[in-house]
C-alpha cells in the first residue's frame, strides 16, 4: 500500500498532531506515504467565494504535480476540505467540457499539465476500504476497553460526492473504532455541520451548531474527527459553545488517527496529544488505565 500524500496547510501548523499521528499510525498499518514536492494550498473553503477558475486551478496544480512526481499512486488527503477541492476538479471537468482546457491554460504558466489520472482518496476511505477493520485490529497493542467514542464525520468527506460512506447515516468509522476495543456512541450528529468557516465570519451561527454537536455527544469520552476544521471548531470554541448552548459538558476531541496510534501502543507524546485543545482528565485517566492493563 503506497499513496501520494497531500497534508494541506493546516496539518503543517494548527493541526500538526493530525499530520504526525496520521503518518505514524499509517506506518503501523504498513501504508507508505510519498510527499508531493512543491504542493501548495488548495484554496480551502475560501476560494469558491472569490474565483471560480481558481477553485479548480489551485487543486489541479497539486494534481498535476502528483501526476508528474508520484505517478500511478492514489492521492491520500486527511483534510476534508482539501479532499473535496481535489476530488471536485475531476468531477466538474467531466460535467463541463470547457473546464479542462481553461485549467490547463492557467497551469501552462508553470509548464504543468492536468490530465485527471490521479484518484483522490480521503484518509477515512483508505482506512475503511483499503486497510480495513481486520488489519486495524491486528495492529492493536493496547485495546481501548471502556472508552466510548462519538465518531464525527463532518460534511465534505461525505457530501456532495458519496463515494465511500452513506452521506445521511455515515458509519465507516464504526468498525474501525470497534476494532480498537472501544465502544461507539449511538448518535445522529456525526454528519451535522460544525459551522466551518462561519466561525470566522458569523460566529454566533457556528456556535449554535457546535453546541448541538457537543450536547449530542453526551456520554462519550471523546469525539473523534477526520478534518482539521471540524477539530478546531469542536475543541477551540467548546467553552463558548457550551455557554451559548446552555447545556452539555466538556468533552475531549481527538483526531481518529490519534486514537488509532494510542491503541497501536504509541505514547501520548508520540501522537502529540499535548497539542490538543480539549482533552479532559477523565479521558487521560481511562487511556492510562488501558496502558497499565497492557503492561
Amino acid at each position: 500500500m503506497k499513496y501520494a500524500y497531500y497534508p494541506g496547510c493546516s496539518l503543517e501548523t494548527s493541526a500538526m498532531e493530525y499530520d504526525v499521528s496520521c503518518r505514524r499510525s499509517l506506518e503501523r498499518l504498513g501504508a507508505e506515504l510519498a510527499d508531493i514536492p512543491g504542493w501548495t494550498c488548495c484554496g480551502a473553503s475560501a476560494v469558491e467565494p472569490v474565483s471560480r477558475l481558481l477553485t479548480f486551478a489551485l487543486p489541479a496544480r497539486n494534481l498535476a504535480l502528483a501526476e508528474r512526481e508520484t505517478a500511478g499512486l492514489d492521492l491520500l488527503v486527511p483534510c476534508s476540505a482539501c479532499y473535496l477541492n481535489h476530488l471536485r476538479v475531476g468531477r466538474e471537468c467531466a460535467a463541463d467540457r470547457a473546464l479542462p482546457g481553461r485549467i490547463n491554460e492557467a497551469l501552462s504558466v508553470e509548464g504543468l499539465h492536468y490530465a485527471g489520472k490521479t484518484r483522490v482518496r480521503h484518509l477515512l476511505d483508505v482506512l475503511s476500504a483499503d486497510v480495513g477493520a481486520e488489519a486495524v485490529a491486528a495492529a492493536v497493542r493496547r485495546p481501548l476497553e471502556g472508552l466510548t467514542v462519538a465518531p464525527y464525520y463532518g460534511c465534505q468527506a461525505l457530501r456532495p460526492y458519496p463515494l465511500f460512506d452513506d452521506p445521511e447515516h455515515p458509519r465507516s468509522m464504526t468498525p474501525l473504532i470497534e476494532a480498537l476495543g472501544a465502544t461507539v456512541l449511538p448518535w445522529d450528529l456525526g454528519g451535522h455541520c460544525c459551522g466551518a468557516s462561519l466561525m470566522a465570519t458569523k460566529k454566533e451561527a457556528a456556535l449554535v451548531s457546535v453546541a448541538a454537536i457537543l450536547a449530542g455527544a453526551e456520554g462519550a469520552d471523546a469525539i473523534v474527527t477526520v478534518c482539521p476544521m471540524c477539530q478546531m471548531n469542536l475543541e477551540a470554541y467548546q467553552r463558548e459553545a457550551l455557554k451559548a448552548g446552555g447545556h452539555g459538558n466538556p468533552v475531549s476531541v481527538l483526531y481518529l488517527t490519534q486514537l488509532l496510534g494510542l491503541a497501536f501502543g504509541l505514547s501520548e507524546e508520540s501522537v502529540l496529544l499535548h497539542k490538543n485543545l480539549a482533552v479532559t482528565g477523565a479521558l487521560t485517566d481511562k487511556l492510562r488505565a488501558c496502558a497499565a492493563a497492557e503492561a
Binding site: S45, E48, C155, Q156, R159, P160, P162, P167, E168, C193, G195, A196, S197, L198, A206, S209
Partner: peptide, 8 residues
C-alpha cells in the same frame, strides 16, 4: 457553510 446537505 458549504455543508452540501441541500446539494445532496
Amino acid at each position: 457553510s458549504a455543508c452540501y446537505t441541500c446539494t445532496l
